[in-house]
Simulated assay, not measured.
Amino acid sequence: MKKTTLLIMAAGIGSRFGGGIKQLEPVGLHDEIIMDYSIHDAIEAGFNKIIFVIRKDIESDFRERIGNRIEAVCGKKGVEVAYAFQDLNDIPAEVPAGRTKPWGTGQAVLAAKDEIHEPFMVINADDYYGKEAYRQMHDWLVVDHADNAIAMAGFILKNTLSDNGGVTRGVCKVEEGHTHVIDVVETGNIVKTVDESGVVGASADGVKLDPDSYVSMNMWGFPAEEGCAPVFLKVLEEEFRTFFEKDVPENPLKAEYLLPTLIGGLIRGEKYTVKVLETKDKWFGVTYKEDKEAVMESFKKLISDGLYQEELYSDL
């Protein structure tokens, strides 16, 4: 079987969660965290390598909370586990005075470049994506594609909103037929709206958005020849240097190197194509502390509906 990697970006500071490590919050019946379900679904779909991208300062807590347990589970299944570390100072320039946070999802992937020698998928640590997206992404990655091809799990905007505040999403434009993305615009402060008849909508800073539009949830797939690093990693590294030349001088304390922004530019420049892998699954995640109770109830329902066992890994 062709080797495929799941890269989990878990280095986020979690500022909207009150400074805690939100990726490590328990949400399952037996103290599982969201990452447990992501890893379960990825292994079930056929992924056979896991890379955690974390910060060095949370390594001990991370290994104690999930890393050691996942290594034991993966060891029984023949799934490799590796770690990479996202570091504020690991950049092709000097760190601006006063900068305290890492440089975003693009840098997170670059932190793991030495560990990636096969097709890989990227996800956020604190998002639940559902089983369908993992199956579709794995099936796409094990087939040969051009070096400039990318796949994106296409979630429906109204299925990805929080009841407790604004969220950031890569809002997509797709061609007729809904097969390929023609633009991605990273859009912040998207809030859920509900009209008098109960229909869910969305707006960003007062501007209405199409609630049925596709959005990126940072679930991307990148092809590679077996045993080779994906070509995309070279592009990611080159564009990181450009980011420090153009974007950082304008906003040195807050500029972020984000995958949706980069990929949107590559699409507009006709350098890459992005295949939409549509999923109707409902996203949920712990963006805010207030989200946690609803997420816990969602996992209880998934278990009662038979999608997961109470002992999560017992069916692998």
Rank of each mutant, 00 (worst) to 15 (best):
L312N: 05
A111L: 05
L259D: 10
E80L: 06
M35E: 05
Y308C: 07
T287N: 07
E118Y: 02
P223K: 03
L266Y: 14
E250M: 13
N189I: 00
I54P: 11
V171G: 09
V143P: 02
W283Q: 10
Y288N: 08
L141C: 13
R169F: 00
I267K: 11
A204K: 08
N124D: 04
K280M: 14
T261F: 09
V95Q: 09
K131E: 10
F62D: 03
S314K: 14
P249I: 15
K271E: 15
I123L: 10
L29R: 11
E245K: 14
P211K: 03
N124K: 01
M219L: 10
L302D: 05
Q107H: 09
Y134G: 04
R63N: 07
V53P: 09
A202P: 00
A84K: 10
F120Q: 05
K2L: 03
T187K: 05
K158I: 12
G154E: 14
G177T: 13
C74E: 02
H178S: 12
K192Y: 06
G269E: 15
P252N: 14
T273D: 12
A11M: 06
E237C: 05
V286G: 02
K275F: 09
V185W: 01
I150T: 12
G227Q: 05
N251M: 06
G264I: 12
A151K: 14
S203C: 07
S38R: 07
L312C: 10
G170M: 11
F85R: 10
A10I: 04
Q309V: 02
P223L: 04
L262D: 14
V27I: 15
G20M: 05
A229D: 01
A111T: 03
D281E: 15
E245A: 15
E239H: 12
N148H: 12
S203R: 12
F232W: 08
K3I: 01
L157I: 10
Y214S: 08
M219D: 02
G14W: 06
Q309Y: 06
F47V: 01
N48G: 05
G75K: 07
P102D: 15
Y313C: 06
M137N: 03
Y257W: 08
V191F: 03
R268P: 11
E238A: 15
E250H: 11
S15W: 07
Y129P: 00
L312S: 13
E239I: 00
C228V: 04
I123F: 03
E239C: 10
E250I: 08
T242A: 10
I8W: 01
Y128L: 05
G106L: 03
V142P: 00
F17T: 07
I190D: 03
R65H: 03
A149D: 15
K271T: 09
N218Q: 08
R55I: 04
A125P: 00
T160H: 10
K3G: 05
K282T: 08
F52E: 02
A202S: 04
T187A: 13
Y313M: 07
E132D: 14
R135A: 10
V73C: 03
E310S: 13
Y288W: 05
K271H: 14
E44I: 00
P249Y: 14
F284R: 02
G19I: 02
K101I: 10
K76L: 14
A125W: 01
